[in-house]
Design a protein around this nucleic acid. Structure first.
Lengths: 203, 203
DNA sequence: GTCTATAGTATGATAGAC
DNA sequence: GTCTATCATACTATAGAC
């Protein structure tokens, strides 16, 4: 989206700094509830100055979501292209997703809270495309897992997919990076529940 | 919240009609993204006329959420007060929740999408209280289930509670009342996944 | 119960000086 | 890269006529 001109420092120049501030505010309050003045205030400048760096408020959230989704899909593609078993791939995708919640918390939160609103604009059509790809990824893995005899055959794949997708991403609402639980620990517990259930089966 | 003056018809008078329209729009677009003009337009009147029925836009969403939560808690209290086993109570609470998604779809959607924003106003402090009650309900049932030997003891109750809570309510994002799946069917599948898992355990 | 008319404010964005 | 100043618009809400 931008040709990194002079990458002198980690997290780049002023533009990336402002983008990070906007990300935090969008994630905390929602896109619509965050004004350009809020962002400027948090950055210690006036709202008009923001427009030296960005075309519009929409451009900011666009860049945030697009960058994040590209990175995430690189990881997903590496997993699906590997030679792991369907069940192992499914576990890897879950773990990669919880890692994303940890490392790109704001972006995930924005996507969770505001995607349904943003998707209404042509500019954000790519979000819909990614949703379709995401659905294919999960249902493909679930079907392959059933076929391989690794997963139960009596469940509605479409429905399991929705539970899976939602449960993974909705964790962004309570997960706090740097808190007590690592993304790996959360993924462990989640995969145990998902795969084995919470009922006591043996004595 | 209001003394039903002349209940002549199902769903009452004009006030309830307008409230239902507002609920639909709030649920579809979000509270902040829905203007009083949108609501008035959908009702075929002008925005100023809405203020004959309601103090403010906030009053509308307040009445919607408060009414809904009162009704929901009546059901929860009946379940917890029953003599069912912990696991059966847990199942009943899950079923009651999916029923709520079916029967009060807009209200659940509004709560899911906008509660975190609304909770910032003192007026909506009761939402925070209900969240606390909700947490106690779930964790209490989970702990009782473990103690009764019905649920696995090796899981983090706090974490299971979050997954449970989120997975149940987030279904409002895809569930459509009157669609192919009944709330009971969704609850069946969900409880199977939650209790038994999706992995194939035996031949 | 709805309309006309409008107040008061907040918002996204722009132009040009520094 | 930021500030000053400001425009145009959209929003919630009100007062009083019908």
């Amino acid at each position: 989206m931008s040709a990194a001109s002079t990458p002198e420092r980690p997290a780049g120049g002023r533009r990336e700094e402002l983008l990070a501030i906007a990300a935090r505010l969008f994630a905390e309050r929602g896109f619509k509830n965050t004004t350009v003045r809020d962002i400027a205030d948090a950055a210690g400048i006036l709202s008009g100055s923001l427009y030296h760096h960005f075309d519009s408020k929409e451009s900011m959230v666009d860049e945030l979501l697009d960058t994040f989704q590209r990175e995430l899909w690189k990881e997903y593609d590496a997993i699906t292209g590997s030679d792991l078993s369907p069940r192992a791939k499914l576990e890897a995708v879950v773990r990669a997703s919880f890692d994303a919640i940890d490392h790109h918390h704001s972006e995930v939160a924005i996507f969770q809270n505001d995607a349904s609103y943003l998707i209404g604009f042509e500019r954000f059509g790519y979000l819909e495309e990614r949703n379709v790809r995401f659905r294919r990824l999960w249902t493909g893995l679930l079907e392959a897992g059933v076929e391989a005899g690794e997963l139960r055959a009596d469940l509605d794949v479409e429905l399991v997919y929705r539970f899976l997708r939602d449960t993974v991403w909705v964790a962004v609402r309570w997960y706090r990076p740097g808190g007590e639980l690592s993304p790996s620990q959360v993924a462990d517990q989640y995969l145990t529940i998902l795969l084995e259930g919470i009922a006591k089966t043996d004595g």
